[in-house]
Simulated scan of single mutants.
Amino acid sequence: MTTNAPQPEVLRYTAFSGTPGGGNPAGVVLDASALDDADMLAIAADLGYSESAFLTAPPEELGGHEGRAYSIRYFSPKAEVPFCGHATVAAAVALAELTGPGALMFATRAGIVPVEVAEENGTVRATLTSVEPHIEEVSDDDLTEALAALDWQAADLDPDFPPRIAFAGARHLVLAAATRARLAHLAYDFPRLEALMHRLDLTTVQLVWRESATAFHVRNPFPVGGVVEDPATGAAAAAFGAYARAFGLVPEDAVLTLYQGEDLGRPGELTVTLRADDPRVRVGGTGTRIG
């Protein structure tokens, strides 16, 4: 983008909350056609949100969804990420305000992500469907390093939740805390965890505590994005849903509620829907414009 070119409009939305002070803020640029990678990174860095979404024309494979399909890229203040759930929800809510609710299709670096947007009593809710997930082992050495960076002990882990790397558009290390108090106290070694995450190609670390059969509290350190903690993480929620189902921690058909952001003063709520007949994971929540 040349210095004399018109500056794109940067919208600000929060996802997974119906109030501007909750959930996870995201920048949204609905027409990023004039921007290059450096421009998008600069805008994301200037905003300082964990991620921002940049939309352009859809690829040919989505040509049949005229006016309801887009290519989308996501940038944190430090780097591009392949997929971001909260910025997807934010972009979908922004589009719904312009073109109305309904079905949208986003072509991401991770694959095609459909989103359904509905409005009820003035509240807009977007539900994305992830790409097909998978689960990977994490080595003992890498787990030891992760715990050391977090200043956690092996005894701090819930033995019912085996540590794994889960993917549903981005890679996340899933670690479950044995107590809510352990989850609440998060003071980690930023450069040490960042180095491990770069080596394992992780987007966040998904820290979880189980409150009930279908309710979980979660936190997501995000040093690779230049952010200490992500307030509400849709991509990690999708990955966790796949992980929980794979290990029989929840039924194959289930609706889970993930509470995130409480410890940051930005409470958000993510709904994770699992279907026995579909390996993909649905993640939904409300969204609203900021200012």
Rank of each mutant, 00 (worst) to 15 (best):
A177R: 01
A110K: 11
E116H: 06
A15V: 09
S71W: 03
S33F: 04
A195F: 03
A38S: 12
L274Y: 00
R182Q: 15
V174R: 02
A170S: 11
T203F: 01
T233E: 06
A276M: 01
S33W: 02
G48F: 11
E145G: 08
G169W: 03
G111W: 07
V10P: 07
D278H: 10
A118Q: 14
A170W: 04
E9K: 14
A107Q: 09
F83I: 12
G102T: 14
V89C: 06
L47N: 14
N220R: 02
T19L: 10
A187R: 12
P20F: 08
A235W: 03
F83N: 12
V89G: 02
I165E: 04
R109M: 04
E252G: 06
G64E: 15
S71T: 14
L270P: 02
F222Y: 14
E119G: 13
P59T: 10
E61Q: 15
A195G: 05
L128F: 08
F75E: 08
A168P: 03
Q153R: 10
Y243H: 13
F216C: 02
L202D: 01
V81H: 05
R171I: 11
E66N: 03
A244P: 02
V29Y: 06
N24R: 07
E137D: 15
P267E: 05
D39M: 07
H217I: 13
A246F: 06
E229T: 13
R73N: 05
H134G: 04
R12E: 10
V113Y: 04
Y74C: 12
T288W: 09
A254R: 09
M1W: 05
I43P: 02
A237W: 00
P8C: 12
V272I: 05
L274A: 03
A237M: 03
R280N: 09
A244K: 05
H134W: 13
D158Q: 05
A110F: 14
R12K: 13
D158P: 04
E136F: 07
G67E: 03
